[in-house]
Structures are given as C-alpha cells and as structure tokens.
Amino acid sequence: MPSKTHVTATINGEEVEFLCEPHQSLLEVLRETLGLMGAKEGCNNGNCGSCNVILEGRLVNSCLVLAVEIQGKSVTTIEGIATPEGLHPLQQKFIEHAALQCGYCTPGFIVAAKALLDQNPNPSEHEVREWLAGNLCRCTGYDRIVKAVLDAADS
C-alpha cells in the first residue's frame, strides 16, 4: 500500500494541508478529508459536472483530478463562492428563478456559471448553454438555470 502524501494547497483562499493516498480524487478528499460536502459525486467519470471546482482559475471536474495534483495550487469550491456579506448573485438568482428541484446538480452549475462569468461577464444565451453542456440536470429541463445565469450576468 503506497504511503500517504502530504499536500499543501490554497482552498477557498485559505492554505490547507492534508494527507492523502495517490489514488484519491480531489472530490474524495474535499468531501471525506476536508469536510467540504458541496461538490457532489454524480457520475464519477467526467460526464455530469456535479463535482465542478475551479482549479487555478479553470473549471474542472474534481472527480478527474488526483488530490496529489493540487500541491501548491489554488482551488475554489462552491463553499468559496458566497462572501460573509451574502450570497453570490448567481446563488441569489438561482433562488429567485427556482432554478433547481432536487438541488444535487446545483453546486456544480453555480461553480461552472461562475467560471463563465469570470471570463465572460455578458454571455449570450447560446454561450451559456454551450458552456453548461458539461453539467447535467435531470429535474429542471435547464431553462430556469439558463435564465438565472443570464439574470445574474445582468445584475
């Protein structure tokens, strides 16, 4: 059995240290070692986007990143999106538009949408739909999610 590796990374702006085995995914370590339960395990193979996090400014599926790979890197999870002052506009608009039913996919959608708005603050509906193609929602039919993202971009 390989020994545990010591990893230091910045997660949601704070320096974090943890021990993990090389085969553990970032998703597994976020949830089971660090107690950050916002990223969800859906497909565990890169199709559904419910485990989305932002790694070094780029949107990734945390199920397809090894936790050891984040040594020295910066990660933002859904827990790092709101501020002490209040919800992020995307979170607020998801509530206003009722852009969720069961809510399981929601953290992934919000993290993905944040990554979009960070690099394109005023996307078209087509750009939103194309960007969110890597996130699956089996309840809403996507329409409310797209409207919430467009509304958040406007605000």
Partner: peptide, 9 residues
C-alpha cells in the same frame, strides 16, 4: 472534445 471542464484538462 468534451465540455469546458474536459477541455481545460
């Protein structure tokens, strides 16, 4: 190839 998340990796 894939979506944004896959393209980034």
């Amino acid at each position: 190839i894939g979506g944004v998340q896959i393209q980034n990796r």
